[in-house]
């Protein structure tokens, strides 16, 4: 509005990080609370367990953050991840590829899923919700078809399970998978904040028409953004398969919503144009810590999703309050 013209000197950055500060504060509060509630919560092994539980959804959430900032949505990440797990099983066990090739192949396969999503959305003009809903079902079915509804075991490559489970710090059981997750967080944060791709994601999300009229090839960049989200899906699928040392063809439905929940709790707007990787990671950790803490304190499981649901509502409401005040 014109009334808040030049004199409004509250820089946008500060109010944005306020939300993150609030989310981070909530995370600390939850951590402290559970530490008092149970003596077994704040132990190295339980904290590492939380990080492991956050790894797969967290990696999915990283890719989804880009998609949501660009004003899109991706519902295919949960079952897409399962399909990528099956594909790494196919490559390594059925086709006898070496581990590195099987892993790379599955990650690229994830990229392909994302590419198809991006193509359907920006070239065929299918709305993101529908395009990725379709892909969610296709991926779920293909996992079963390709695997013959049976789990695929890595008989030829028992070392594949080390990708997730190898202990990088001797004596501490800090798994390689968690380290990969932490590295991916940094990579995603740098891409979002420091590269042309990140800049276009924000631009497309805040005003797609204006970005297009500025001479940006929006269709191309949307395909790139969805493809990149797909690569994260591929990595998540490989790590999930490695953790169980088997590619389980069933499941994955609902994981996409957990990832989206993490993104939203972290202050990313579903309308696009706003959000950050740090926020998403705080969101993912809040969900993981809550779920773990409620289990450690033996809260009945029925109540666990009630609590997580309420946290999402509160987080989004706080964001709305902040916007009103700003």
């Amino acid at each position: 509005m014109t009334t808040i013209s030049l004199k409004n000197r509250i820089p946008a950055k500060i109010s944005g990080s306020l939300q993150q500060l609030f989310a981070f504060g909530s995370l600390i509060v939850i951590l402290v609370f559970f530490s008092f509630a149970s003596p077994y919560f704040f132990t190295t092994s339980n904290l590492v367990g939380i990080l492991m539980a956050a790894t797969v959804t967290g990696i999915l959430a990283l890719g989804t953050t880009f998609v949501i900032i660009a004003g899109g949505i991706d519902l295919s990440i949960g079952t897409g991840m399962i399909l990528c797990g099956v594909m790494t099983g196919v490559f390594q066990t059925y086709w006898g590829w070496p581990v590195w090739a099987g892993v790379l192949g599955a990650v690229l396969f994830g990229g392909l899923i994302g590419f198809v999503n991006g193509f359907n959305i920006s070239v065929l003009g299918i709305p993101p919700f529908i395009a990725t809903l379709g892909m969610m079902l296709v991926a779920s079915g293909l996992s079963l078809v390709i695997s013959g509804t049976k789990p695929i075991y890595f008989k030829e490559h028992p070392e594949f399970q080390l990708l997730m489970n190898y202990s990088v710090i001797p004596g501490m059981r800090f798994p390689l998978g968690v380290l990969i997750f932490l590295i991916l967080i940094v990579v995603a944060a740098v891409i979002l904040a420091k590269t042309i791709l990140g800049r276009y994601a924000y631009s497309i999300g805040s005003n797609e028409a204006a970005t297009e009229l500025s001479g940006v090839n929006v269709a191309k960049w949307k395909i790139i953004i969805y493809s990149m989200a797909g690569l994260f899906v591929g990595i998540a699928g490989v790590l999930a398969a490695s953790r169980l040392s088997s590619a389980q063809p069933v499941g994955g439905m609902g994981l996409e919503l957990e990832a989206i929940a993490a993104v939203v709790i972290g202050g990313t707007s579903l309308q696009g144009g706003k959000g950050s990787i740090v926020g998403t990671m705080i969101g993912a950790l809040i969900v993981a810590v809550l779920t773990n803490g409620l289990r450690v304190t033996a809260v009945p499981q029925e109540w666990q999703s009630v609590v997580v649901g309420c946290v999402i509502l509160v987080a989004v409401y706080m964001d709305i309050l902040r916007r009103k005040r700003a």
């Binding site: 946008a12 590269t195 042309i196 800049r199 276009y200 924000y202 631009s203 805040s206 005003n207 028409a209 204006a210 970005t211 009229l213 500025s214 001479g215 940006v216 144009g273 706003k274």
Partner: peptide, 24 residues
């Protein structure tokens, strides 16, 4: 508002929007 600018982004982001490759 619809076709010209990114309302929620900074002046800086807006002025370089058409020439990002030049700045990368």
């Amino acid at each position: 508002k619809r076709y010209g600018i990114l309302l929620g982004r900074s002046v800086r982001d807006n002025v370089v929007l058409a020439s990002l490759p030049k700045f990368a």
